[in-house]
């Protein structure tokens, strides 16, 4: 069987198993929409200033862009880091390693599945945001840039997740470590709370160093008409490549003792 077919098969089996765990699948899908409703209800009346610009946007549509970015991060970073750690500790990865299936095919299957989940989540968020809050749906050249951003983001956050599994000692510790690594950035990167026109210098610095704010800025450009910079996509991709290099060296197929 060709590697492409094997990868597609892997996606199919991953997807079958994913939907048969309704608690896990349900929450993955519920989170971004739930947060979208909560944030827009609590904070959605005013206008949000976009850092580094003189623009303001309605807070409701601001959150459509934010939650679209959050969807990708949830599906590709949080979900992969936790589920792969679980699979490692359950001995699933070790068994796979003893078969002729190339390791990269197995991981590609998982990353591809997570990307598809992320795309569906973004589409749901955008559709809901369009209907409920009149958010703009990207079209034309904006759509093309948006798709590139989405795919680069999905792949990069998945790669970082695979690298992170190498510092997670066991499945029990995974939720704590994974959330600790991503939650502060979600608060400080213009995702959960608008940063306003002039964020504090250290917040600004964190946003420039880590990939989350760059990714959010690129997603905002698609939904909010804010300036788009390829450099944002490039920073996300650089993090993704770094994650891939680290993962290829440090990734463990056996439970860590």
């Amino acid at each position: 069987m060709s590697e492409l077919r094997l990868t597609v098969r892997q996606v199919w089996y991953t997807n079958t198993a994913f939907w048969r765990n309704p608690a896990s699948a349900g929450f993955t899908f519920a989170f971004p929409l739930m947060f979208l409703v909560i944030f827009t209800t609590l904070l959605g009346n005013g206008r949000a200033a976009i850092p580094g610009t003189t623009m303001t946007v309605p807070q409701s549509t601001f959150y459509v862009a934010s939650m679209a970015a959050f969807s990708v991060i949830t599906a590709c970073y949080t979900n992969i880091a936790m589920s792969v750690t679980f699979q490692r500790d359950a001995g699933i990865l070790k068994r796979i390693r003893g078969t002729p299936l190339p390791s990269r095919t197995y991981l590609a299957g998982r990353v591809l599945h997570a990307t598809l989940v992320g795309i569906v989540l973004v589409a749901l968020t955008a559709a809901f945001g369009h209907i409920a809050y009149g958010a703009t749906i990207p079209a034309g050249a904006t759509l093309a840039r948006f798709v590139v951003t989405l795919l680069v983001g999905a792949g990069s956050f998945a790669a970082i997740a695979l690298a992170v599994t190498s510092i997670v000692p066991n499945a029990d510790a995974a939720p704590a470590i994974v959330n600790f690594s991503i939650m502060p950035l979600l608060f400080l990167s213009d995702v959960f709370i608008p940063l306003g026109r002039h964020p504090a210098a250290w917040v600004d610095l964190l946003g420039k160093v880590f990939p989350v704010r760059h990714f959010v800025q690129a997603m905002q450009a698609a939904f909010l008409g804010t300036p788009f910079a390829w450099s944002d996509v490039a920073v996300v991709a650089a993090w993704g490549l770094g994650g891939l290099v680290l993962a290829s060296r440090l990734f463990s197929w056996e439970p860590r003792r």
Binding site: Y13, T16, A17, F18, R20, N21, Q87, A90, G91, I92, K94, R95, G98
Partner: peptide, 13 residues
């Protein structure tokens, strides 16, 4: 073919 002491398979398949 390998049968290890402790390996798992996906519980939902």
């Amino acid at each position: 073919g390998i049968v290890l002491q402790s390996t798992g398979v996906d519980p939902f398949l």
